[in-house]
Design a protein around this nucleic acid. Structure first.
Length: 423
DNA sequence: TCTGGGGTCCTAGGACCC
DNA sequence: TCTGGGGTCCTAGGACCC
């Protein structure tokens, strides 16, 4: 990032819902919502769904029985599909600039030359529309915090691109936005700012940064400076290495049996191990947490157990067997378990991991086995071939598997489910 | 019956050290 | 009755992001 550059933020409008519409043209201009895992609540909405008053996080069962919402189309979340679109989007963005920081599945920060930023952003906006059929909004500004506001403004006006180049431009905008629209300021912080008469983004920008740091935190100080056009949060072109990897799911059905809980934990640990290997990290420990549902009747509990591994690893077998054992240890009779979490923390690069003094039998075999599993998974990705350890849910989904009653089968990530085009 | 999942960072306070 | 000063490390909790 040099002085002749500005920041831009590319954000896909209603990413998940938009991806569903790309493959299902009959959903264009319709109120569409995408549901969280287990078809629990709304996590994305098209403009038509927003106009109907459907809120983010609204439980689906409420909408489903509302007679006024009968024409709303629901789709189960299909993260593999959204991830594929995200990768395609990043590839397009990367053809415009080498300074790029993917921030989330639907957002990407980049740096552009100041004098051509708006023109390039417009070109990028149109290209994404033509190539991916996805609607994006792009904000341009001297800092990332201001670029975030610019993107909100671009969405708000429907202009697609919004550039805040001069202080007068963003100062005027800051007066219109409540402080909670500022990146890094949420409801809790807004409540602490209110007694000091800070309600709008402009009022926050006028606050003395040093005073704000003493009174609140260093993050607030940085946010204030960024709102004034001074860069405090630079672009990180190298994604920081992962410090922890979590797999946590609400189960499709409550689980009461000890061995079933162990089976769930073992299969979740497989997911964590695969992601560890993809990120080239190893973990020295596994944590398993078992919880009941807070909204279900009956006795509530949340127990967890942690085990240090013989050596830091990313291999499936030791992680799965350890997680299953931990689940057996944390399990208590009489509870309806509804959520299982498997956590790997204090991650390191494999080269930095401390090796044990005594190498235990089977350790190298575990690593080779995991490597072979990854190679086969890559070779057969996109087909109906699935590889895994053990017996959990391979052929038939187990009873505890998530509900995905609204999953649309067409996708860009499997050969047998590609969309068909008839000439 | 049915309310997501996956991350990061900061701060305060306690334990412990010399 | 008096009872330093400075440091590190760890953990829990809180807050934020999407």
């Amino acid at each position: 990032m040099s002085r002749g550059q500005v920041y831009a933020l590319v954000d896909v409008d209603a990413m998940y819902a938009s991806c569903e519409q790309v493959l299902q043209p009959h959903l264009w201009h319709r109120p569409v919502v995408v549901l969280s895992n287990n078809d629990g609540c709304v996590i994305a909405r098209t403009a038509q769904a927003k106009a109907r008053g459907i809120a983010m996080g609204q439980p689906w069962f409420q909408l489903a029985r509302d007679p006024r919402m009968q024409d709303v189309v629901a789709r189960s979340a299909h993260f593999e599909l959204y991830g594929d679109f995200s990768a395609r989007l990043q590839a397009i963005i990367a053809s415009y600039t080498p300074w790029i920081q993917p921030y989330s599945i639907d957002e990407c920060y980049l740096a552009l030359p100041r004098d051509r930023a708006a023109a390039l952003a417009r070109q990028l906006h149109d290209q994404v529309g033509r190539w991916l059929d996805l609607p994006v909004s792009i904000g341009i500004a001297p800092t990332r915090t201001l670029a975030h506001l610019a993107t909100e403004q671009a969405k708000h006006t429907g202009a697609g691109v919004c550039e805040l180049a001069e202080p007068e431009q963003w100062q005027q905008l800051l007066q219109q936005w409540p402080v909670t629209e500022v990146w890094g300021i949420a409801e809790r912080m807004a409540q602490r700012l209110a007694p000091w008469g800070i309600h709008t983004a402009a009022q926050l920008a006028r606050t003395d940064p040093g005073w704000a740091r003493r009174l609140w935190s260093v993050e607030i100080e940085r946010t204030i400076r960024e709102l004034r056009g001074v860069t405090c949060i630079p672009l990180e072109e190298q994604p920081p290495p992962r410090q922890q990897i979590v797999h946590s799911r609400h189960l499709g059905q409550p689980v009461t049996e000890r061995e079933t809980v162990a089976e769930v934990a073992g299969s979740f640990a497989d997911r964590v191990a695969r992601r560890l290997r993809r990120h080239e990290r190893v973990t020295p420990m596994v944590t398993v947490q078992l919880a009941t549902s807070a909204v279900a009747p009956g006795p509530q509990t949340c127990t967890q157990a942690t085990q240090t591994l013989p050596a830091p690893t990313a291999a499936t077998r030791p992680m799965s067997t350890t997680a299953a054992e931990l689940a057996r240890r944390a399990w208590r009779p009489g509870f309806h378990y509804r959520r299982v979490t498997v956590l790997a923390a204090e991650l390191t690069a494999p080269a930095d991991a401390t090796r044990p003094l005594l190498v235990q039998d089977g350790m190298e075999g575990d690593e080779r086995l995991s490597a072979a599993l990854d190679a086969l998974t890559t070779r057969y990705s996109g087909t109906s071939v699935t590889l895994g350890f053990g017996r959990a849910g391979m052929r038939h989904p187990p009873a505890w598997a998530q509900r995905q009653h609204h999953l649309w089968p067409v996708t860009t990530t499997r050969w047998d489910r590609l969309p068909r085009v008839y000439a």
